[in-house]
Design a protein around this nucleic acid. Structure first.
Lengths: 206, 206
DNA sequence: AAATTGATAGTTTTGTTAAAAAAGTCAGGA
DNA sequence: TCCTGACTTTTTTAACAAAACTATCAATTT
C-alpha cells in the first residue's frame, strides 16, 4: 500500500489536533498559545499555520472531532431503547458526561458567550438537532407502541424538555453559587433531572 | 393630629426611596449616582447619607419595597385557585411581569452575579419561599381534592418545576442570542411555559 | 436637638501609554 | 511540498495619572 502525500498530511494534521485538544482541554482556549502546541510537537509555530489558517479554526477543527465522537455515541444508540424513559436517561447521562469531561475545553464558549464563530454555531446546532432527533424518534416509537398519547409536534415537546432539564442545572448551580459543581452536587442535579423526566413522561401518557 | 419628628423622617425617607427607585429602574444600579438622586430631590448628597448609611443599603431598601409589593400580590391570591393549573399560570404570569417591569432595576443582580449582599439574598430567598409556598399549598389542595396523586415532598416538586420553567427562559434567550427579548419572543416563552406546566400537572395525575 | 450643606478625604473607575506576549506572515532552505 | 527563523502586526498586561464617585464631617440653619 502506497502512502500518498495527502495521507502524510492527514497524519500530521491529526497529530496537531491531538496536541491542540490536549492543551485546550487542560488549559482552555485563552490559556494555550500556538507556540505551546507547536512546542509539544517539537515543530515550529509557522508549521501550524501551514496546516491550519489560524488559531480559532484550529479550535473549530478540534471541536469538530470532539463533537463527532459525541454524535456517534448518539447515533449508535438511536432506536435501541426499551422505552422513552430509557432514552431520556441516556440523553441526560451522555450529555452530562460530555460536558463534564470537556469542561475546560468549552471555556471558549463561556468566554465569547454571544457572537461565536458561525462554524461553532453550526456544530452546536448539529449536536442539538442530533439529540432532538434521537429523542423525537424515541417519542414516536413510544406513540406507536401505544404507551403515550399521540403528539402533534414531537420536536417541540423534546425541545421543551431539554430546555427544562437545562434549567435544573443552571438554577442548581446559581443557587449553590459555585463555579465548579462537586460530585454530590452533580448527583443531585442528575436525580432532579431524572425526576423531571419521569413526571414529564407521565404527563405524556393517556 | 400631631405630626411627630419621626413621621417627618419617614415621609422624607419615602421620598428618597421613590427617587432612588426611579433612577435604579431606568438606569440601573451602576449608572445612577448618589448625586443624581439627591439632585432629583433638590437636596444635598450628604443628606442622603443622613437617612441611609450607604448606596447599597439604599438599594436594598428599595428592593425591599419592590419585593413587598410582589409578595403581597402572591399572598393576596393564595388558596384562591380553582385548580393547580390556574395556580401555575398565575405564578408564571405574575413572576414574568415582575421581572419585565423591573428589568433594569435588577441589573445589580446581573452585575454582582455571585456574592450578593446578604440582605439581598434574604429577600430573594423570601420571594422564592413565598412562590414555593403558594404553589405547594395549591398542590396540597389538589391532592385533597383527589385530582392528583399524593406527593411525598411537594416542595421538591414545586422547586423542580420552577427550575424547569427558568430553563425555558434562559435557553430561549440564549438561543435567540438577544439581550432584550421582544414582545413576540416573550409570548413564545410564555406559551412554552404554559405547555410545560400543563404536561407537568398531567404527570402528577393518577 | 434635628436637619442640612459645602468642602473634602478616600476609593473605584476610566483613560493613557509603554512594555510584553502572542498571533500571524513571509522569504528562503531542505 | 514541507518546514523554519526572523519579522510584522495585533492583543494583553502593567503602571500610573486623571476623573468620577462614594462617603465623611465640621459648620450652619431650622
Amino acid at each position: 500500500m502506497m502512502i500518498t502525500a495527502n495521507d502524510q498530511q492527514d497524519v500530521k494534521k491529526e497529530k496537531i489536533l491531538e496536541a491542540a485538544h490536549h492543551r485546550f482541554l487542560h488549559f482552555g482556549y485563552s490559556k494555550t498559545t500556538m507556540n505551546e502546541i507547536a512546542g509539544d510537537l517539537s515543530m515550529s509555530k509557522a508549521l501550524l499555520y501551514y496546516y491550519f489558517p489560524d488559531k480559532s479554526q484550529l479550535y473549530v477543527a478540534v471541536m469538530r472531532k470532539v463533537a463527532d465522537g459525541y454524535l456517534k455515541s448518539l447515533t449508535d444508540r438511536i432506536n435501541t431503547f426499551a422505552d422513552l424513559k430509557e432514552a431520556f436517561i441516556f440523553q441526560i447521562d451522555t450529555q452530562h458526561e460530555f460536558i463534564v469531561t470537556n469542561y475546560n475545553f468549552f471555556d471558549f464558549f463561556r468566554l465569547n458567550e454571544q457572537n461565536l464563530p458561525d462554524a461553532i454555531w453550526e456544530i452546536v446546532t448539529q449536536v442539538h438537532e442530533s439529540e432532538t432527533h434521537m429523542l423525537v424518534s424515541a417519542i414516536k416509537t413510544e406513540v406507536d407502541r401505544g404507551k403515550i398519547k399521540p403528539v402533534s409536534n414531537p420536536t417541540e415537546i423534546v425541545e421543551l424538555l431539554l430546555d427544562a432539564l437545562h434549567g435544573v442545572r443552571v438554577k442548581s448551580v446559581s443557587h449553590k453559587k459555585t463555579m465548579f459543581p462537586n460530585k454530590e452536587h452533580l448527583e443531585e442535579i442528575r436525580s432532579k433531572r431524572l425526576l423531571l423526566a419521569d413526571i414529564f413522561i407521565k404527563g405524556l401518557m393517556y
